[in-house]
Each structure stands twice: as C-alpha cells, then as structure tokens.
Design a protein around this nucleic acid. Structure first.
Lengths: 346, 346
DNA sequence: CGCACAATTGACAGCGCTGTCTTTATTGGC
DNA sequence: GCCAATAAAGACAGCGCTGTCAATTGTGCG
C-alpha cells in the first residue's frame, strides 16, 4: 500500500539499507553486481525514496525555493517552468514561493521558509533580488542563493547572479525606432520598485544621445507596469502640442495600454504612431498589430540561475552569467508619416 | 543558528516536548496557564516547527498538492493564488504540481508524488480532473482529492467536486448577443480535450434554440484555446457569403484572435462586428475595445476546492458546490449595424 | 475525607532516511 | 603467499516531530 521503504528493498536484495541508500543516491562505492541486484529490487518493489525522510535526515532536503513578488502572470509561469526544468533534470525538488518583497521582515520570512523545510537554497527573482539589505542578512544566515538582476554587466560582488542587460535591449529598441526615422519618441516608464525600469530608461536616453537628439522631460511619462498607466501615459503624450510619432512602453502591458489609447483616439498603429513594448509576452504577440518588443526568455534565464544554485549547493565553482534580450520587430512599428500628411490628420 | 526545536522550547518552558507539540498544533487538552507558558517560550526562541519532521512523523504532512495541466498563464496564477490563500489560512503547505494529463501513467505519477512527500490530498483542476479512469485509480489508492469540473449541476457521485456551470454562462453571453439584435452569431469552439468546450457549445446552441434560431454548422468553427485558432476561425467566418454580425470565442485568447482578425480585415469592433470572449482574463480587459466576457473567478473557485479538500482530510462533512460565471459586458459588443448600412460597407 | 473518574502531562518508540564509524572483502607489491 | 592499503558493505545513531499509552494531577460527590 504505502510505498516500499529502504528496508524493504534491502531485505529483497539481501543487502543493508545503507547500501540501498548508496545506490539510490548514485554514490560510486558499490560493486557493479551489488548495484545491479539492488536496482532490480528497487524496480521490483517500485521503490521511491521518501523525500521528507531524506530531507530530515540528510544535511539538506535537495529542494530549492523559487521566490518571487511579481504580478506578471506570464513572467511567473515562465520562471516556474524554467526552474522546474532544471530541478527535474538535477533531481531536486522545487518549492514555489510568492512573497512580499517590501516587507521589512523579508530576510526573516525567507529564513523561516528555508529552515522549516530545510530548503537547500533560493533563486531570487526581481524585485526580491534587489533588496540588497535583506540579501546581506540572508547571506549572513548562510543560506545559499542566486539572484536574477537587471544590470549591464557582471557586478562582480560575492553574490552569484544572473544579470540581464535591460539597458542594452532598451537601447536596441530605441535605436530601431530612430532608424525608422522617428525623431520624437515617447517613453512610458515602469515602476520605480524595479531596477529594470531605470536601466531601460537609461537605454532609451543613451540611444537618443547617441543619435544627437535632445532628451525631453515631457516625453518620459512616469507610471507602473500596468495597462492603465500605459493607457493614461499614452493619452498624455498624444495631447502634447507636438506629440511623439513613436512610443516605447517599458513592458508589454504598458505598451498594450498605449495601443488601446491609440486606437481609442482613432490613431492607426503603426501608420499614425509606432508602439514598442518589452518582454515578448503573449500581450505583444496577441494584440493587433502585434508589438515590436524585446524578447526576454525568463524561462531560460531562471533555468540557468537554478542550475547555478544547484552547482553552488554542491560546492562546484559557478560563474555569473549575462543575458541580452533580443529585439523582435513586429507590426506595431513603422516609419513615421511624412510631415505633410501628418499635418493633414490633425 | 539552525532554528530552535521542540526540545529547546520544552526545556525553556519546563514541560515535555509532547506538550509543546500539543500547543503548537492547537490541541485542546492543555491547561491555559501551561499553554501560556509554552507560547511564551515559543515566542522567546522564535520556534518554527520543522515541516519535514512533522510530515515524516505524523499521519500525513499537512500539505496539499495543486495539480494542473493547462497552458493558460492567468488561469494558473489565479489558481495558485486561490490555493495558497486557503492553505495559508488553514496552516497547510502547498505543493504546486504541473503534470501531463494525457499520460497513461497519470494515476501512478500522482500517487508517487503523493507518497514521496506524504501529500495529504490533491486539488485537481481541468483537464486533469476529467480523466475519469485515472481518478478512479487514484481513489483506489485512498488518496483524497477534490476536483474542479465543468458541469451544469452537481454530479452527485462519490467524488467531491466544485462544478462550474459553463453552459449557463455561455447561454448568458449568447443571449446577450441575441438581445442586442444579432441573428447570425459565430462560435469559435475550444479544444475537445476540455469538457468545458462542449458545455459552452451547448449553452450557445441552447440560447439560439430558445430564441427560435437555427443552428448553422458553418457558424461553429472548430479549434483550440489559442490565439491563432481564434484568428483563423474568425477569418473563415468573415469570408462566409453571409458572415455573422457577432462572434463568440470560447475563451478570451480565442476572442483576442478574433479581434485581431477583425482589425486586420479592416472591420471595426463593435460597429461592424461584435466579439465576446469567456474567462475575464487580462486579455479581455487590456484589448481595445475591451471584451465582453464571462467572469470566472478561478482563484475563488480553487480556494473553495482547497478548503473542501482540507475539510475532507479532516473527516469533516463536505458538500459539493457550484459556481456560475458572471456576464461582464464591455465595449466589444453592440447592436448590429442596420441592414442598409451594412450593405454599403460590403 | 476518600474514591471513581476525567483532565493533563509525560515517556518512549519510531516515521524513513543519511552521516559516521567500523567491519569485512579485495587488491597490489614484494 | 603475506601484509598494508584500499574498496565495499554494514551497524547504529539520530534528524525533529507525533501517536500511543502510561503516569500524574485535579474534580465531584457520598
């Protein structure tokens, strides 16, 4: 009924429980013929190690935690898939853990989580990964973790991380718009809670500067990563005396809001105004027109981070790794209308 | 360093470990003053029970599993939130578990999952919850579970469930379109793997019948719950000699595809064609125009199912419960154009 | 005041596994 | 062929908790 235990297998194979344990955990010091016999017994009894017992007994539970505080459903799912793929592959368990990254007790909350379940380590995603103070405490508790952050280059500090160059991707998107001929490009900012927002803004500004264009305050609207802010922000841009011919939303949801604002204002995208997003979420693929955006493979990034964490737990050497989101050009961006015709519309 | 244990607390409070265990688990047979003393010690030592030890020792691990096999990110997140809310409230752990509902070993996979971690019970969501054969096996393994299914009424079988009346909601949406004056309504079907697809189709047909309208095969396009099928299906409908004046997509993603198809065909929504979805996902709120849809609170439904499961695990009596998605009218549906003008456009 | 009974509390084993240490088998070198 | 060195296998304790049952304390009542 309740599955077989180590002892059952040991009896069946005529060896000690410890030997079965060794085989089950792939330790090398077992003679091939013994291993064979044990494997047969495991097969015959359909034995599966009890993870609770293993975790309670061993040094740790061979389980990692994926920690997030992010309202973006696609992002979460992609991250979960990535972490799961790595964990399945490495025979680790996965505990998925939402949390409040703004809590003052963040470090303690995570510590309790880790201790209660003997979690072997944590993969921290943004914005949890940006709470430097909490991370320092966490490190103080000797909890291994890897963080995923938004940065242009390897921070080279003592905390292993995967860094995503949001600045560069935003630079690429802005450059794409500039090369299409847009001279006035609106930027809908993301929430300040995320470092990525600042990075993307930086990429936008850098590109303008590189092209010798002025950076205009009225073209950079503040907001958060939500549809409504995209909608409102875009409307504000449209209402300017001299509205932008292109709008770059800090993520796809913001861009979707801008798209809706354009359509509700009777503007045709991309003929009257170009719109670009960031993330390559289904939003960007499933809108009309589909959005030009930056593809960010959260699944692959998290999978990588998870593998790094497991390596770290096994005391193997790990190197930080960087990712560059990739420009994806779709139907929502096009050259601006010639001046003459643009005038007519107004 | 590593958190305090029961014994530490026991020593501090001057009682036995078992008494601390009783207090920690809220058992009643402890004198108030003793309880008080123990609670103080727990507080002082910042004690947190080790979940692995509790699970290994006790009859089960006070953890339930949420099982799903559904590509819809919003759905998954909503379900996770609902399950988590219930689990947090009832002091149960939650294991989130994607799976392959088409696997022939589904029942065995789930059994192994349950046994390995001493999971107390499972919440099965569609389409896993519809694999009747596997469920029967699962019940044979004495694994408690609650399933969420698409059904118009309480199935009154021996498996506890939460049932969602998709038929009724589809009926309501179709009726809404009929009452607006639409006489030809296209229906973009969902994948056959989900019972909900058939239920929704039934609701559509029932409503037409109720209004004395014929059910036309050419208006019911087959497909799956993906954007592209919505896009293609809608195009096929637009190409009919006599195209529908309204399209009902079996979920929001399909409807988003239809919306894109309309826009790409130069049709204005809702003036040239009305479009309705199903689910109330962000898709429906964040498109332009926003979609009329049926609100289905996956979070609340799953939370309810989770509470039922926990009640069941505690041998408390449980009654099946039904949910009715609620019609949400937004900008994507309107009366059809008067015939005369419609002609002009063609 | 003394007894039957109920309410509290504690002692102890054991959940199923792994870490440590010990014992036994095997190998290579002279 | 014998011994040291190494490899393989086993014995045993114990991870931190709960279930069971026994011991203790408190209660009501004649």
């Amino acid at each position: 009924m309740g599955s077989a235990t180590l002892d059952d297998v040991a009896k069946q194979a005529g060896v000690s429980a410890k030997t079965v344990s060794r085989v089950a955990n792939g330790e090398r010091s077992v003679r091939p013929e013994t291993r064979e016999r044990v494997l047969r017994a495991i097969e015959a009894l359909d034995y599966r190690p009890n993870l609770l017992a293993r975790g309670l007994s061993g040094a740790h539970a061979y389980t990692i935690g994926l920690v997030f505080d992010n309202p973006n459903a696609y992002y979460i799912i992609a991250m979960q898939q990535g972490a799961l793929a790595a964990c399945d592959d490495m025979h680790f368990g996965l505990q998925i853990r939402p949390c409040d990254s703004t809590a003052s007790t963040l470090a303690e909350d995570l510590r309790d989580f880790v201790h209660r379940s003997r979690i072997s380590g944590l993969v921290l995603t943004t914005p949890v990964s940006e709470r430097t103070r909490a991370l320092r405490k966490l490190a103080g508790y000797h909890i291994p973790f890897v963080r995923i952050i938004s940065a242009a280059r390897d921070p080279r500090d003592d905390i292993p991380c995967v860094y995503v160059d949001d600045r560069d991707a935003a630079y690429a998107i802005t450059t794409h718009l500039l090369q299409l001929g847009h001279m006035r490009i609106g930027f809908l900012q993301g929430g300040k809670r995320h470092h990525a927002s600042a990075e993307r803004l930086k990429g936008y500004k850098d590109a303008l500067q590189h092209y010798g264009l002025p950076i205009r305050d009225e073209l950079m609207v503040e907001g958060d990563y939500v549809f409504d802010d995209g909608f409102r922000g875009a409307r504000r841009l449209f209402d300017l005396a001299e509205p932008p011919t292109a709008i770059f939303g800090c993520n796809d949801e913001i861009a979707a809001g801008a798209l809706a604002a354009a359509q509700s204002a009777g503007l045709s995208v991309p003929y009257d105004v170009s719109i670009a997003g960031f993330e390559d979420s289904p939003f960007s693929r499933h809108s009309w027109p589909p959005l030009t955006t930056a593809r960010q493979r959260a699944d692959i990034i998290v999978e990588r981070a998870t593998r790094m964490l497991i390596a770290r737990i096994r005391d193997e050497p790990v190197d930080n790794e960087g990712f560059n989101p990739e420009l994806v050009v779709r139907g929502s961006t096009a050259p601006p209308r010639p001046k003459s015709r643009q005038r007519k519309r107004r």
